[in-house]
């Protein structure tokens, strides 16, 4: 069974969703800023992929899910992961390669997951998590579980894969409670939308799959909460798969190795290039929660600094202690080790 983090599960449900969104997004932004500086300082091996500018859309999915649901995040979903209950320290562990992390140094960064918490560890092949999430949902249905939802993310580029198509199609055929959130940030790595697909709006595809579609301004966290929250609710009620397309911009490169200079300047200065964190801060201030915002930001900074300090002292994976076994079989272990 899934064990949500830090015993907050009971109070979480009563919390204002926008407060949960705010906290998840602030923790994600602060953590990712820290990861970027650790990367530049050479303390992270491998890539660092950030969700800067996409926190609102991502967090909405994580916050809308509840215990017993399943989340299959993609590379820009730090906020959604934290909103759903992934321990922040596990994110740090995955990046710094701690042996105590969920992947034990066997895999890293955004490829982390924790099946016991209902978080699927993504593989790098885009679109692949759509059918896998559908499979988890089919299994839950066969086990007679009720009221569960699965949510997975994709970028505009992932929608071009056969895997994405096959996955969403099969989820629709099986009428599974799957929410697919597409973050359309205009670019797949450096490739703009017009080299990725010829349709004017990805949302039009919902009709072709026979699923409900929802469009949202991905830079507006309140709107994201409303729209993604509604999609999750529709899936939970039995309305079948839901396709959400959020339009936004990533406010960074594809990864921290990439300066992202190919992103159109006009697009950057348009409303699509707004920073959802600033939008949300203003939205919270308008609600009279400005002081809370500052406090949450400070708490996030303390939490991140504490986690990085803690993980820095944790053991790293040791090739001599490693099990080096790719199969689970007990008893046949020796035979399998020999291959």
């Amino acid at each position: 069974m899934m064990d949500r983090e830090v015993g907050k599960a009971s109070s979480q449900a009563e919390q204002d969703p926008m407060e949960r969104m705010s906290r998840a997004m602030l923790r994600a932004r602060v953590l990712e800023d820290k990861l970027a500086s650790l990367y530049r300082a050479g303390r992270i091996v491998g890539g660092v992929y950030l969700g800067r500018g996409q926190e609102g859309l991502s967090a909405a999915g994580g916050v809308a899910l509840r215990k017993g649901d399943v989340l299959a995040p993609l590379i820009r979903d730090m906020a959604g992961r934290l909103g759903f209950g992934e321990p922040l320290v596990d994110a740090v562990r995955a990046y710094l390669g701690s042996k105590l992390g969920p992947m034990k140094g066997r895999d890293g960064n955004i490829h982390r997951g924790d099946l016991s918490r209902g978080i699927l560890p993504m593989i790098s092949h885009l679109g692949a998590m759509v059918s896998a999430t559908a499979g988890v949902l089919l299994a839950k249905r066969m086990k007679k579980e009720k009221g569960f939802v699965g949510l997975t993310s994709a970028g505009d580029g992932a929608t071009s894969t056969g895997s994405f198509h096959e996955g969403l199609n099969v989820a629709a055929v099986e009428k599974l409670p799957l929410v697919v959130v597409v973050a359309d940030n205009g670019y797949a790595y450096s490739t703009p939308n017009d080299r990725q697909f010829a349709c004017t709006d990805l949302l039009d595809r919902a009709k072709g799959y026979g699923v409900e579609g929802h469009g949202v301004d991905g830079t507006d966290p309140e709107a994201c909460w409303e729209v993604v929250g509604r999609a999750v609710q529709r899936a939970r009620e039995g309305a079948g798969p839901q396709l959400v397309v959020g339009r936004l911009l990533r406010l960074c490169g594809h990864g921290e190795h990439d300066d992202g200079l190919y992103i159109d300047k006009k697009m950057k200065s348009s409303d699509r290039g707004r920073d959802c964190m600033e939008v949300l801060r203003d939205q919270m201030k308008a609600r009279g929660l400005g002081q809370n915002w500052d406090r949450w930001e400070k708490e996030a900074q303390e939490e991140v600094e504490g986690a990085v300090k803690k993980v820095a002292e944790e053991p790293l994976p040791d090739p001599f202690e490693e099990d080096w076994r790719a199969t689970a079989m007990v008893g046949a272990a020796e035979a399998v080790q020999k291959g």
Partner: peptide, 16 residues
């Protein structure tokens, strides 16, 4: 949908 057939099985297997 061979990709989705196997992908769906992977998800179902992860779920027990």
């Amino acid at each position: 949908s061979e990709d989705a057939m196997v992908g769906l099985a992977v998800g179902a297997a992860m779920e027990g």
